[in-house]
């Protein structure tokens, strides 16, 4: 058990180091001279040299790499070229908005997916099941950048129920969270349906029914509990899509989070901020996935027994 945890943490550390290195080299993707791209062709040589020095680009690549990792260890992500403020500070300001959006989307997804998937499985091959499956297929096929404007059109412009954009109060969270949560709800409900169908065929379900337990108790207490485990893994993996989708969703709704910051920084050619955002989002993803893996082992006694044998 301890071995498993240690090896999982070690491989997560390797991935985090790899991700950080890749992000470091991203700036070399900028065609030609990044300093020239940032300042424009008409910039004075002195300004260019100053920026080059500020970014550390005047040093040899190994030294740059060392400084970069040294900075990361001290939570020093550099300075934003646009606002001249420490990037860590700028990101800390934006983080709550993204967390709020992601958690709300996750809640919406879970609240929709479980009843929908469970009903679909229990009433397999009925009109209800077909309806639920069509809805989930639609949910998977609708991109965030279209669902968002569509919801704005219906609920903000035509019905006037909710604000169009921005982050002011609970009402402004509803549409962005719904936009971001729909695809996840669709994927999860398919997963819940599939695993629940599998669990409902198990012997212990037959035993539970033979004992005379009500269908409600059988499904809710016996089947759904065991169907939860694979769903949790999928949830961890889907978090990546959620974070990626958050970028687009934040742009649609002018939601002042990390995603909006990333895209703004790209358009402003504020490359250090772009790097820092990409790094933070992917490292979060790695950490959450590692935690999901560990939680899985902890939740499922069968996995633990297998390890100890």
């Amino acid at each position: 058990m301890l071995n498993f945890i240690l090896s999982r943490l070690l491989s997560a550390a390797v991935v985090v180091i790899g991700v950080s290195s890749l992000v470091f080299f991203l700036i070399h993707l900028v065609p030609g001279d990044p300093v020239e791209v940032m300042l424009g062709e008409s910039a004075q040589p002195a300004d260019r040299a100053a920026l080059r020095h500020a970014l550390g680009l005047d040093q040899p690549v190994p030294v740059q790499l060392f400084n970069y990792f040294n900075g990361l260890l001290h939570f020093d992500l550099g300075t934003s070229l646009h606002s001249q403020r420490p990037i860590a500070e700028v990101m800390l300001e934006r983080m709550p908005a993204t967390l709020e959006l992601a958690v709300a989307a996750l809640l919406i997804a879970v609240v929709i997916a479980f009843p929908l998937g469970a009903l679909s499985a229990v009433r397999k091959d009925t009109a209800l099941d077909h309806g639920a499956r069509v809805i989930s297929l639609l949910g998977i096929s609708i991109p965030h950048f279209w669902l968002g404007p569509l919801l704005i059109l219906i609920f903000s412009l035509w019905l006037g129920w909710l604000p169009v954009s921005g982050r002011e109060g609970f009402a402004s969270l509803v549409l962005p969270a719904l936009t971001l949560g729909t695809a996840l709800a669709a994927i999860l409900s398919r997963m819940v349906r599939a695993t629940l169908l599998e669990t409902l065929n198990e012997d212990y379900i037959r035993t539970a029914r033979a004992k005379g337990l009500g269908e409600y108790t059988v499904v809710l207490h016996h089947a759904l509990r065991n169907a939860l485990l694979p769903v949790i893994t999928v949830l961890g993996l889907q978090l990546g899509a959620l974070l990626g989708g958050a970028i687009v969703t934040e742009m649609v709704f002018s939601w002042p989070g990390l995603g909006q910051l990333t895209i703004e920084a790209i358009h402003r050619r504020d490359y250090p901020v772009v790097q820092a955002c990409i790094l933070l989002i992917s490292v979060t993803y790695v950490l959450v996935n590692t935690l999901t893996d560990l939680a899985y082992v902890w939740l499922d006694p069968r996995v633990r027994l297998h390890e100890d044998r």
Binding site: V15, V23, G244, T262, I266, S282
Partner: peptide
């Protein structure tokens, strides 16, 4: 480890 479309956004950007 790069979630979804994030790396593509970074590269294209």
């Amino acid at each position: 480890a790069f979630p979804g479309i994030l790396l593509a956004i970074a590269m294209a950007g």
